[in-house]
Simulated scan of single mutants.
Amino acid sequence: MLLGSLLAQYEEELIAVGEEAESLSFAYRALKNWTFTDFVLALQKEVEVEDQALLLSIFEQLKHHVPAQYIIGSADFFGHIFAVDERVLIPRPETVELVALILEENDEKALRLLDIGTGSGAIAISLALARPTWQVQASDVSEEALALAQENAKQLEAVLEFKSSDVLDELEGPYDLIVSNPPYISRDDVEEVGANVLASEPHLALFADRDGYAIYEKIAQQAPSVLTPDGKIYLEIGYKQGAKVKELFQEAFPDKRVRVLKDQFGQDRMVVVDNGSH
């Protein structure tokens, strides 16, 4: 069978179970290490037996809601390739906006930064690579996630420190910048989560108690004792959480400015606590 015909057959079945059809060709191209041109040229060719087996394996995993990034073992984030598997969340495009904002608002001056709930290390490593003058620390409550983050740091030759901690329990500071993309999905909003996310990505990194606000509440409670006077906090939030998270941090930092910023799709996505310099 021609590659194009076999792909079309599998893609139709993936759509029927609620998966994105393009995930199949994306994963196949990545595992074959093909350029897009290689792929287009192969569409009108007969599929070799071993490639039929590879396509079937990818299809079966996608059909059972395994994300394409887990199948290929990596994800692109901020121009770097990060290893990902079931130990960590797959880095999202909206988190790229958070990293870009931090870099835009903070220059090369030596700063001490903490990334809470680092997961794959995508935020902390990207910032450490972009700002080698910064002293970057990354923490997570999951030892498995920390192990993968350390592998990514080594692979990308990033210099930073990793710590095991539940939010700030095991950390002393002081910090000039605190950043976090914590678990923020309420267990009542499980129907909003995609099937492949729910089936494969770690629930510890997805869901939070107290309607999704538990980690924000803990950061707001603990951060005042470790943030420097000119320090800033950058948080990724769920699109419905802007007002509540702003209220939490305005109460914790009454003398600071608290901003709710939107992502490229016009949804509330970031909360920033600072002294109003931008």
Results as ranks from 00 to 15, higher is better:
S5G: 04
S5L: 12
Q9K: 13
E11I: 01
I15H: 09
G18K: 09
E19V: 03
E20L: 14
A21E: 05
E22I: 10
F26H: 13
Y28Q: 02
R29H: 01
F36L: 14
F39Q: 09
A42L: 11
K45L: 15
E46G: 11
D51F: 03
L56T: 15
L62Y: 01
K63R: 15
A68W: 08
Q69S: 04
Y70D: 00
G73W: 03
S74M: 02
A75K: 05
D76V: 08
F77N: 01
G79P: 06
I81E: 15
F82Q: 00
A83D: 05
A83T: 11
E86I: 02
E86Q: 13
E97W: 04
L98N: 08
A100C: 05
L103I: 13
L103S: 05
E105M: 11
E108M: 07
K109P: 03
L111H: 08
L113N: 07
G119C: 03
S120W: 02
A124Q: 09
S126I: 09
A128E: 12
L129N: 00
T133M: 03
T133D: 15
Q137V: 13
V141H: 07
L146N: 12
L146Y: 09
A147G: 07
A149I: 03
E151K: 09
Q155K: 10
L156K: 00
E157S: 12
A158Y: 00
A158R: 03
A158N: 01
V159W: 06
S165M: 06
D166R: 04
D169P: 00
E170M: 11
G173S: 05
Y175R: 10
V179R: 03
P182F: 12
I185C: 08
I185S: 07
S186P: 03
R187Q: 14
R187K: 15
D189H: 12
L204K: 05
A205R: 05
L206T: 03
A208D: 02
D211P: 09
A214I: 06
A214S: 11
Y216W: 07
K218F: 01
I219N: 06
P224K: 01
P224E: 06
V226K: 00
K232F: 08
Y234R: 06
I237T: 14
G238A: 12
Q241D: 10
A243T: 13
A243N: 11
K244S: 09
V245D: 02
V245P: 02
K246N: 08
L248N: 03
L248Q: 06
L248A: 04
L248W: 08
E251D: 14
E251T: 11
A252L: 06
F253Y: 10
F253T: 04
F253H: 07
D255A: 12
K256M: 10
V258G: 13
L261S: 07
R269G: 07
V271E: 14
V272W: 11
V272I: 15
V273Q: 11
N275T: 12
G276D: 13
G276V: 10
S277D: 13
